[in-house]
Simulated scan of single mutants.
Amino acid sequence: MDNYSNIYLAVFFIITFLWVIEIIKFRPEVADGQSKKTFYQILFSIVSSIVLTSVFFFSDTFSVPSSLRPFFINIGIIGYAIGIFVRLWSRFELGKYFSHHVAVDIEQELISKGPYKYFRHPLYIGLFLLTVSVPVFTFNYGGLIYALLSMKYSLSQRINEEELEMEKVLGQRYIDWKKDRYKIF
């Protein structure tokens, strides 16, 4: 392996380390009434995407041609880096309102700074980028197709659940807030 590849692998492992630290440091604390269903759907999508991509990678199944691999590696590491940046920035902006599960408090502040100035769910955008960037980085189109479909489905379910709960608890305040922000999924 050349130095160029070693640098990419080091960056990939550093980002993965940051992602794992984010998961460990901000472990889900489930209060009464919080919905856990979509959390487990998303977790299953992430884990199954990574496992399937690993199986495909190590068996050299569904790999792109050798000539396209440097392009995929570059796009994968860029997407991975953007994903962790957006995820951590969004997590920081949410502060005490962050939860791995759907939880809405009537007194909850609606965050309108950072990535929340433009997007309704930047945490999920970051998570999507992190997950789909793994098969891109490993130049595996089979894993990429699975990750895209699985994460799109899981995140759409979560966003629908979350938005219904926000509208139910926060009412017009949330409806007005979301009008000025893009919904990605």
Rank of each mutant, 00 (worst) to 15 (best):
Y118F: 15
Y116D: 07
P122A: 00
V132K: 04
Y118M: 05
V134G: 01
Y124P: 05
F137H: 03
P115A: 08
F119N: 07
F119E: 03
V136W: 06
V134C: 00
L130E: 04
S112V: 05
D105S: 15
K117Y: 14
L123M: 13
P122V: 08
H121C: 11
E107M: 13
G126Y: 07
G114I: 08
F137R: 00
K113I: 12
E109M: 09
L110E: 10
E109V: 14
G114K: 09
V134E: 03
V132E: 00
T131D: 01
K117E: 11
P115N: 03
F137V: 02
S133G: 05
Y118N: 10
P122S: 06
G114M: 12
H121T: 11
P115M: 07
K117W: 06
T131E: 01
H121N: 15
S112Y: 13
G126M: 07
L110G: 13
P135M: 07
F137Q: 00
E109C: 10
K113V: 12
E109G: 06
V132W: 00
Y124D: 08
P115D: 04
I106C: 05
P115T: 00
I106T: 15
L123K: 09
E107W: 10
V132S: 06
P115W: 08
P122D: 07
I106G: 00
G126V: 08
L130F: 10
T131P: 00
K117V: 05
E107N: 15
K113E: 13
I125C: 02
E109I: 14
V134W: 13
I125G: 01
G114E: 11
L130S: 03
F128H: 05
Y124Q: 10
L129Q: 02
L129R: 01
E107S: 15
V136M: 09
S112R: 09
I106V: 15
L110P: 12
Y116V: 02
Y116A: 09
F119S: 10
Y124N: 10
K113W: 12
I111A: 07
P135L: 04
S133C: 05
L127H: 06
V132Y: 00
I106P: 10
V132Q: 01
S112T: 11
L110S: 10
R120F: 10
E107L: 13
T131Q: 03
V136D: 06
L127K: 04
I106M: 13
P135I: 02
E107P: 00
K117C: 01
P115F: 12
